[in-house]
Simulated assay, not measured.
Amino acid sequence: MPLGKYYCDYCDKEFQDTPAARKRHLQGLQHLRARAQWYHSLSDPNQAFADPFAKGVCNHFVKTVNFL
């Protein structure tokens, strides 16, 4: 049975879809950088403090929670 192809939207790359090949790709530096760049492009610095619920957030909570 022929194996299918896996296409990575972040890297714009296609390769044979085996568990080992997919794992190797998803843990690769090129993929991690491309994915990080894509998510970074979605962030809008003007919207960082636009949340109306953010005014009542406890300072201790903000300092102790890791958002990334």
Rank of each mutant, 00 (worst) to 15 (best):
M1L: 07
P2E: 12
P2R: 09
L3K: 10
L3Y: 00
L3V: 08
G4L: 09
G4R: 13
G4N: 12
K5F: 04
K5I: 11
Y6F: 12
Y6P: 06
Y6A: 01
Y6Q: 06
Y6E: 07
Y6W: 04
C8G: 06
C8V: 03
D9L: 00
D9R: 10
Y10W: 01
C11K: 08
D12R: 14
K13R: 12
E14I: 02
F15E: 00
F15M: 07
F15A: 03
T18R: 06
T18P: 01
A20Y: 12
A20D: 13
A20F: 11
A21T: 08
A21N: 15
R22Y: 04
R22E: 09
R22F: 02
K23P: 00
K23D: 14
R24T: 09
H25N: 04
H25S: 00
Q27D: 13
Q27V: 05
Q27W: 07
G28H: 01
G28R: 02
L29S: 15
Q30Y: 13
Q30R: 14
H31I: 03
H31F: 04
L32Q: 15
L32G: 15
L32S: 15
R33K: 11
R33H: 13
A34N: 00
A34V: 10
A34S: 09
R35S: 05
R35L: 08
R35D: 06
R35C: 04
A36N: 02
A36M: 08
Q37E: 13
W38Q: 04
W38L: 06
W38G: 02
W38P: 11
Y39W: 03
Y39V: 03
Y39P: 02
H40M: 12
S41N: 10
S41Y: 06
S41C: 08
L42S: 09
L42D: 09
L42K: 13
S43P: 01
S43M: 00
S43Q: 07
D44C: 00
P45E: 01
P45H: 05
P45N: 08
P45W: 07
N46E: 01
N46T: 06
Q47I: 10
Q47P: 06
A48K: 09
A48T: 07
A48E: 13
F49T: 14
A50R: 14
A50I: 00
A50C: 13
D51L: 05
D51H: 05
D51E: 03
D51P: 02
P52E: 01
P52D: 06
F53E: 15
A54T: 08
A54Y: 05
K55S: 14
G56P: 09
V57R: 03
V57Y: 00
C58F: 00
C58E: 05
N59V: 15
H60D: 10
H60V: 05
H60M: 07
H60C: 04
V62K: 15
V62S: 12
V62A: 12
V62C: 08
V62L: 13
K63E: 14
K63W: 09
K63F: 06
T64P: 10
T64Q: 10
T64Y: 06
T64M: 03
N66H: 09
N66P: 04
N66D: 11
N66R: 09
N66M: 04
F67T: 03
F67P: 06
F67V: 12
F67W: 06
L68Q: 04
L68E: 12
L68Y: 03
